[in-house]
């Protein structure tokens, strides 16, 4: 029974710590944006970083990822998912950015109009 109570205590502390840390991180990000403390790309990087830290906090304290016993199926599947996610999202953004760049910053409809006017000019 004593071990069980210990376990209970530990889990409860986990939840409380996770909750408070998440709240703090959320407020930090909020204040950074609403107070105009940082700007430009630095701000985006910092709040993105804060979101990642909060993700780690919740994975550890709410989803108890560290407590999983071997073979750590959840950790492995999460890692694989994260890898695929980064590839797909970053790859898409990279591809689409270059597409837009090569289209001279035009949207497809602008491009359509542009091509039509060029054609009318006899090109």
């Amino acid at each position: 029974m004593a071990r069980r109570d210990n376990d209970y205590q530990r889990t409860l502390i986990n939840y409380v710590v996770g909750f408070l840390a998440s709240l703090a991180l959320t407020f930090c990000a909020y204040v950074l944006v609403s107070g105009h403390i940082l700007g430009g790309i630095t701000l985006l990087l910092v709040i993105g970083g804060l979101a990642l830290v909060q993700m780690l906090v919740q994975l550890l304290f709410f989803l108890h990822m560290a407590d999983e016993s071997r073979p750590r199926f959840r950790l492995v599947s999460f890692g694989f998912m994260a890898m695929i996610l980064v590839i797909v999202v970053a790859g898409s953004l990279w591809i689409m950015y270059h597409l837009n760049y090569n289209m001279m910053g035009m949207s497809p409809s602008q491009k359509d109009t542009y091509m039509t006017t060029q054609k009318d000019k006899g090109f």
Binding site: T26, A51, Q54, M55
Partner: peptide, 12 residues
Amino acid sequence: IFIFTVVYLMGV
């Protein structure tokens, strides 16, 4: 968390 960060915070 990511919707809040990417959509709202970064949007503003």
